[in-house]
């Protein structure tokens, strides 16, 4: 799979606030199409990260197993439309 990583987060050994919070924080500052690599040693991430990516319209490109941690590669998707924006277009 080919992609260019534009942002990296090392959230290994982070329990609080944890890898997903680090990811949300970073993705908010990224542009659509940017790719982030997140390292997490938290077992919960394998459920949390894909669930959030799907709900927030981001693309889960890859999950790689490594030595005691996982590497999640996520591409920022188009922002979901706001009600106000939708109304103004009607």
């Amino acid at each position: 799979m080919s992609y260019e990583i534009t942002h990296t987060i090392d959230a290994r050994e982070s329990y609080c606030p944890g890898p997903l919070m680090e990811l949300v924080k970073t993705i908010k500052q990224m542009e659509t199409g940017d790719v982030v690599s997140l390292l997490s040693s938290d077992e919960g991430s394998v459920v949390d990260i894909p669930a959030w990516a799907e709900k927030a319209n981001h693309k889960m490109l890859e999950i790689k197993e490594d030595d005691g941690f996982r590497r999640f590669i996520i591409e920022k998707g188009e922002k979901k439309e706001r009600r106000r924006r939708r109304r103004s277009e009607e």
């Binding site: 997903l20 919070m21 919960g44 949390d48």
Partner: peptide, 10 residues
């Protein structure tokens, strides 16, 4: 909650 649970630490 920003997460898929109410608090960050499982």
């Amino acid at each position: 909650s920003p997460l898929n649970r109410p608090f960050s630490i499982e």
